[in-house]
């Protein structure tokens, strides 16, 4: 049986490796709240990842913070009043043309009460972050 020439195998593997390195976005934040996103069938994909800012809402994973709904911005818990600063900060990191296109994705646990969501929405309005998206899992129904 002739020996299989595997000399090009590293090249192939490297090609795949580079593909993954380029497409990967490292998970930059660790979730500190429990998120079970609600399901919806009419969801749209958020295209440009760099333009999306996330707001996480849900009960804290760590029991010492209680069972109430907590908000996580970046890597720490925050209050609704912090949203404006957070949005301003995220906005300033984008270039001017992209600032209009900034989308805020509200990732909230499905058991969250609407009063939290409404507070967040009001804060976002004040911060002029008007493009929002209610994050949801794709479901067929």
């Amino acid at each position: 049986m002739p020996e299989l020439n595997t000399a090009s195998m590293p090249d192939l593997v490297f090609a795949i490796l580079f593909f993954f390195m380029v497409t990967t976005t490292m998970r930059s934040e660790t979730l500190m709240v429990r998120l079970k996103l609600p399901q919806a069938s009419e969801v749209q994909k958020l295209e440009k990842k760099s333009l999306v800012t996330y707001i996480n809402l849900g009960p804290a994973m760590d029991a010492k913070y209680g069972t109430g709904t907590q908000m996580q911005l970046n890597d720490k818990f925050a209050q609704v009043e912090d949203i404006q600063d957070y949005i301003a900060q995220e906005k300033s990191s984008l270039n001017e043309a992209d600032q209009q296109l900034m989308t805020v994705s509200i990732k909230a646990d499905e058991d969250t009460r609407m009063r939290y969501i409404s507070d967040v929405k009001q804060a976002l309005r004040k911060a002029y972050a008007l493009k929002i998206s209610y994050s949801a899992r794709k479901a067929e129904n």
């Binding site: 590293p10 593997v13 490297f14 795949i16 490796l17 993954f20 390195m21 497409t23 990967t24 976005t25 490292m26 998970r27 919806a40 009419e42 969801v43 749209q44 994909k45 958020l46 990842k49 999306v52 996330y54 989308t103 994705s105 509200i106 990732k107 929405k121 976002l124 309005r125 004040k126 002029y128 972050a129 008007l130 493009k131 929002i132 998206s133 209610y134 994050s135 949801a136 899992r137 794709k138």
Partner: peptide, 28 residues
């Protein structure tokens, strides 16, 4: 070695793009 690196990136990468219902809020 390259297989090792490849597996690392495979595990670490999150290809999932966020999806949701888009809305536009009224100005304040």
């Amino acid at each position: 070695i390259s297989f090792l690196l490849l597996t690392f990136f495979l595990l670490v990468s999150s290809m999932d793009t966020d999806s949701g219902l888009a809305r536009r809020l009224p100005p304040p």
